[in-house]
Design a protein around this nucleic acid. Structure first.
Lengths: 370, 370
DNA sequence: GGTTCGACTGTATGCGCATACATTTCGGTC
DNA sequence: GACCGAAATGTATGCGCATACAGTCGAACC
């Protein structure tokens, strides 16, 4: 099936030219005479020659690829357990449960899509890696060694290792900066979005008893959103919670768990609204509230953050803050490429605008039919 | 920011060892005495050394990465046009329109996720590439040169080029085989799933006047699904359409366009149900039907195919056939790795089981509350 | 003290390509 | 036909690492 891989030398010999000409044929065709080009083209096709990226990368001192690193919430053990084959070829079942949790993180998928698009525009490839398990460190090191620059989502790479590889590569972090770090950052306006959303709940819906469902403790974005929430509460003269009423891990499953706990502990009884740190957890909370007969938004308002597609088709449609996810990815790559050319400029933090999307889960709005 | 990149030679010299020992430190630490290891570790940290993937790949004759190639429906020009910055930092708006089209393809995202997981399990990285635009050919060639094996979704790479690179690499196609091709294939049971779904519409819901909304002409999956549909119709003694009543490009936007056209031309008037080639287009059709006041499923049943998350949260919830998308990706990578070890075995086609999910868009089922 | 064996380390080489530089060829010109 | 500049091509080298093979060293043993 796969034959011995030919090299430039093979092509050069068969075409009766030197390896430099073969190299030029690929790198700079205009520098090769048309008749020669034709000969090389013929041999390349005949041999099935494909230039080695490794050799090219070594010689040219650049790989032409950008690395993208992100965390994963996959339960790999569970996925592993799933049989790849076997079982009946078709199974029919009534699927009455609206709950679903593919485990996929739409936010990440969109950001990755953005990186791919921007990389493509500049002729770069994208290599993705998820540091998980015991070999997480090796995964990151392998990635770092194979790329010209790295985009990483917050919390994907531990601080020490990130500092280590940042000495060799431009690194751009998708998320707000934490104190004292020296990387380029690209983030959305988490603070402003959350302030505006909270203001809306307070001013337009007259909700006063609000609590915040937080994200992971080490997520700068989750932290910033909580601060936006408390700031809006404070400025409105309302009681400011010291901390989130609960925390979950940004997943829908986590949101459901949180919802169950809040319900069980009766923590929602005197509440007007629940402001969640992201969409997935808000959807999870929503799942449980609906199952428990709590009406949203009549009994309790619920809001999310991110603007993933699922938030728009949920029932009720989730009021949220849309981050420009694709643009975050694009800008991150653009910044990596920029720093590749201008290594000595100061680290920058770019904050992209957000859009507060008022939908149904926070109550009716002027203009709504209902 | 980024310093001159140190090499094995630098590390070896500073640590007072040979480059072979440095190499062993990374490749096979057990072969290095602990005291030596410690010294190397120290220097590696101090210098910020990261082994070059290119050099390693060249010397070892393998890159340790798997390529994943998929088509894209992104309107890059439109994405390009979107400003990356500027505008107000926060915009608040009532989002009354449930329609949404992020352009993201959940099916692809899930398959890619599967490839990443399986690659990770075997210590491989994943490089993704989308052949689009004038340089599509170069994108694929660059990818092929940088990986040990390639997974490609159907229709992502043109036949000639695929044949070319398959001479150098194991190639696995995610989709059914087309006549005469020699690659390994991994696909879901499109045919069986569609037969079962159509049978359900006919037998359980007594729908007889059914039409099929097709996918792209060159999609083997779409073709297979259509064949499953016609086969079920034939066996039920019903009229078998020669061809799909319409075709669209697998996107939600395409589905909407199709929906509008069918409505405008009155083609739905005497119909019981619309069987769509995939979820996205079914959702698009649904958007337009709902907007036009057509009640689904009372006036018309609609079904999808794929089982993406959005199909589960749509209103009404979409009856569909779930493909094991993550498993498709996993199995594709597993097959690539297998062929890397056993190059001479015959090409295989593996068909994964599917699950027909009966939800609301085809009518009520026993056990349903409504 | 010499021998042996295993654990550890060093030396030498080539992986396939890009590219600086040298050389040849080509198309005009006088 | 000799000459010239530009275009085209060739030669030589090094990119950073893995690895085959050779060498060293120390401990156990005779």
């Amino acid at each position: 099936m796969v034959e011995k891989t030919p090299t430039v030398y093979d092509v050069a010999e068969m075409a009766g030219v030197s390896i430099a000409t073969v190299s030029r044929y690929f790198r700079n065709p205009a520098a090769v005479r048309e008749t020669t080009r034709e000969r090389v083209r013929e041999v390349v096709r005949e041999l099935g020659y494909v230039p080695s990226g490794s050799a090219r990368g070594l010689a040219a001192r650049r790989t032409g690829t950008i690395g993208v690193c992100f965390p994963s919430f996959d339960d790999v053990a569970q996925i592993d357990a799933r049989r790849l084959e076997g079982g009946p070829p078709v199974q029919v079942r009534v699927d009455a449960d609206a709950h679903v949790d593919t485990g996929s993180d739409l936010y990440i998928a969109e950001v990755v899509r953005g990186t791919e698009i921007e990389a493509w525009r500049h002729g770069f490839a994208v290599m993705i890696a998820v540091p998980r398990g015991a070999a997480a460190h090796n995964v990151v090191e392998g990635l770092a060694g194979r790329v010209d620059g790295l985009v990483t989502l917050a919390r994907a790479i531990d601080a020490d290792q990130l500092a280590h590889i940042a000495r060799r590569l431009p690194v751009v972090v998708v998320a707000g900066p934490r104190e004292g770090d020296v990387y380029d950052h690209v983030t959305a306006n988490n603070h402003g979005g959350m302030v505006a959303l909270t203001d809306h709940l307070i001013d337009d819906h007259r909700l006063t008893r609000l609590e915040f469902v937080g994200g992971p403790e080490d997520s700068p974005d989750a932290q910033t959103r909580f601060e936006g929430f408390t700031e809006a509460m404070l400025l409105a003269g309302l009681g400011v919670p010291e901390r989130p009423i609960a925390r979950c891990d940004f997943t829908r499953a986590g949101g459901r768990e949180t919802g169950r706990r809040l319900l069980a502990e009766g923590l929602l009884d005197d509440l007007d609204g629940l402001v969640c740190a992201n969409d997935q957890s808000a959807l999870g909370v929503l799942d449980e509230l609906t199952a428990a007969g709590v009406r949203v938004p009549q009994d309790l308002a619920v809001t999310g953050f991110d603007g993933i597609e699922a938030s728009n088709v949920a029932t009720p449609r989730l009021t949220t803050v849309r981050q420009p996810m694709v643009e975050l990815g694009r800008l991150a790559v653009a910044q990596v490429l920029h720093r590749l050319n201008e290594p000595m400029t100061e680290p920058t933090t770019r904050v992209l605008p957000v859009e507060v999307l008022l939908r149904d889960s926070c109550g009716p709005h002027a203009g709504d039919v209902a």
